[in-house]
Simulated scan of single mutants.
Amino acid sequence: MSGVGGEPDFDADATEEADATEDAGAVKKAEGTEGTEGADGTADTMDLRLPDELLALIAEEETEPSGSGRTDNQDSAVSLAPPTATPRADLRMPYDDLLDGVAEWGPAATPGGLFHLVPVRMERDLPLISRWMNDPAAAEFWKLSGSASVTEDHVRDQLAGDGRSVPCVGVLDGTPMSYWEIYRADLDPLARHYAARPHDTGVHLLVGAVADRGRGLGSTLLRAVADLVLARRPSCARVIAEPDIRNTPSVAAFLTAGFRFSAEVDLPDKRAALMVRDRSLRHLL
């Protein structure tokens, strides 16, 4: 489902083998220049422990309600008590998701600010998400404009599922500003349209506020979320997206975020660009 301006995404690929050959060559060429990698293709990292004083300070800041947040481009209907001020127990899904606990992934530092993925709570988030879906740029691709019940039905279908898709609000420096769907692409109907691999993880993105679009923020957040997926899901080798091929800004944002174009695929509701971010190439793209 979705793109940066807003749109759902699916994808499939008959050219995966050629892409994989090129990817392998790129990785081999880069060998010895990107740090040490393990046999499974993941980069070795050092386990560093932060000082107790710094950990305490971080914990204090994360539990403190943010009344300031971002003041530039802030949506007028956004509450001053952002979702990140909600107790941790309130962020959990009503079931164990199949994505290694999205609610527990934690924040990501980005050039645009500190970013959190916060699982949707309908009573809290529906009015804001519904208003975003009624923006003309979003409505063209997401097709969820109209009364709040249209968006509610779409989101409830995911919340009532078995954990293969987790709808989230993206919170940047304390301000809710985007809608995300993190999903198991290999367990999704999308898998019938491309050469899916176990634990492929898909992303859909809608940047809510018009002022946050067209300035590179979408690609910044896409890269951050793809990095989160690969860091928190060691079994996942690829992050997948399938924006509508007509949504040029969305496709461009994925390319800028380190995804590669894999194929054009015909899906039930659109012709999509299958975009792939490979674990093995994440330091190169």
Rank of each mutant, 00 (worst) to 15 (best):
L55F: 06
L281Y: 02
T201Y: 00
R88W: 05
M46I: 06
L55G: 05
R70F: 09
G35H: 05
A185G: 06
C236S: 14
D135L: 11
D266E: 13
V155C: 03
T33S: 13
P189L: 08
T45H: 10
D186I: 01
L99P: 13
S165R: 10
I245Q: 09
V225N: 11
I240C: 06
V225T: 14
A252M: 10
S280L: 13
K270R: 15
T175W: 00
D40C: 06
D188W: 11
V78A: 15
S149Q: 15
Y179H: 11
M177H: 12
D9R: 01
P243D: 12
V251I: 11
H154G: 04
D278G: 02
M46W: 00
V276L: 08
S165P: 02
T220D: 07
E64F: 00
A148Q: 15
T175A: 08
D135N: 11
L284G: 07
G218A: 04
A139D: 14
C236A: 14
F10E: 09
E31W: 04
N73F: 14
L221T: 06
R233Q: 15
G202Y: 01
A195K: 03
A211L: 14
G32M: 12
P94L: 01
A18D: 09
N73C: 15
K28Q: 10
L172N: 01
P107N: 07
I240K: 06
Y194F: 12
A30E: 09
G38R: 08
M46D: 01
I58E: 08
R70L: 11
G163S: 08
L126T: 09
F10M: 09
Y179R: 07
G163V: 09
L205T: 09
S250K: 05
V150T: 15
D266V: 12
A18G: 00
A211I: 00
A211V: 04
A26W: 02
E140N: 07
G216C: 09
P234D: 03
M122T: 13
S147Y: 06
E104S: 15
T248C: 03
E60D: 10
D212Y: 02
T151C: 09
T86H: 04
G32K: 05
V166S: 07
M133V: 03
S76D: 04
G174H: 02
A273F: 05
P51C: 06
G25A: 10
R92G: 08
M1K: 02
A14H: 01
L267I: 11
V265E: 04
P94M: 01
D96R: 14
D212W: 05
V102W: 11
P136Y: 14
D40K: 04
G3C: 04
H193R: 08
R192E: 12
L126D: 13
A263W: 00
F115L: 14
R164H: 10
P198F: 01
R238H: 15
D125E: 07
D72G: 11
T86R: 11
N247M: 14
A191V: 04
L91P: 02
N247Q: 15
D9N: 09
D157I: 06
T45P: 00
